[in-house]
Structure formats: structure tokens, C-alpha cells
């Protein structure tokens, strides 16, 4: 998707600073954020490609930590591209989703149980009585 391997390497370094490995979860680059995850993301969000390329151009020959700190300080729009794209691609990774026990915004039919009646929850509100001001008489 129009990104060179050099650009992908720069992205991987930046992405790993945002999402390092930890708590049993892979780092961004290990989860393919700069490779297949990025391609999958750009397929549905092509609007992010040019801002990303501009950002990676600026990041060349810069220390990734220094570059990110500068974006956070002075260029919230550019940092916003990274902050959308890196977790966006990360959470597309099937292994990450499995570890999260997250199967997307899947259907969870409503349990017809009237949970508002449990433990006298609602009765407590009713017992406190009306809280509205009635329409004043003319």
C-alpha cells in the first residue's frame, strides 16, 4: 500500500514507543502494525495514507522518542494521526483480539430478566417519592 520498507521501519519504531510489549501482549510492531495491520487499516482508511507519509518523512533521521515527544508538544494533529493509526491497526490483529476476549461489537441479545427489580433497587427510588415540580396552577 505505497509504503516503502524504510518507511515501515520508521513507523515500527514509533509505534513500539506508543505500544510496547507487556502484560503478555505483543508490541505494536510484533502485532504487525507497520506491516499487514497497516495495509488492512489503510484499505478502509485511505485518508490516513498521505498524513502518515508526511509524518514519516519528518521522522527520518530523528530519534523516535524525541520525535514523538515533539509531536505531543507541538503538533497534536500529526500526533493524532499516529494515535489513530497505531492502535487502530493493533486492535485489528486477531491474536490481540483473542487475548482481549474481544470479538468485535458482536450481537449480545437482551436478557429479558428484569434486573431493575432485583434487590429492591427500584422500590428504593419509588419510596423516595416524586422529584419534579408540577405545573403551577394559573
Amino acid at each position: 500500500m505505497n509504503l516503502t520498507s524504510a518507511e515501515r521501519q520508521v513507523l515500527a519504531a514509533l509505534a513500539d514507543l506508543l505500544i510496547p510489549a507487556g502484560n503478555g501482549f505483543p508490541s505494536a510492531s510484533e502485532a504487525g502494525v507497520a506491516n499487514e495491520g497497516l495495509d488492512q487499516l489503510l484499505a478502509v482508511r485511505p485518508d490516513l495514507l498521505n498524513p502518515l507519509k508526511g509524518l514519516l518523512l519528518r521522522a527520518q533521521d530523528r530519534g523516535p522518542a524525541e520525535f514523538i515527544a515533539e509531536l505531543q508538544r507541538n503538533d497534536s494533529a500529526a500526533f493524532g494521526v499516529l494515535a489513530e493509526l497505531v492502535p487502530g491497526a493493533y486492535f485489528l490483529n486477531p491474536d490481540v483480539r483473542t487475548k482481549l476476549k474481544y470479538d468485535g461489537q458482536s450481537a449480545r441479545p437482551i436478557d429479558p430478566r428484569e434486573d431493575y427489580l432485583e434487590d429492591g433497587l427500584l422500590q428504593s427510588v419509588i419510596d423516595r417519592g416524586p422529584i419534579y415540580r408540577p405545573t403551577p396552577a394559573k
Partner: peptide, 13 residues
Amino acid sequence: RANHSDFELTAGR
């Protein structure tokens, strides 16, 4: 796209 993995990425668009 609620039933797709890219829902959160594409909803705003």
C-alpha cells in the same frame, strides 16, 4: 460496519 472488525475505524467516516 458494526459487524465488521474495522467498525471503530470507519464509523466516523
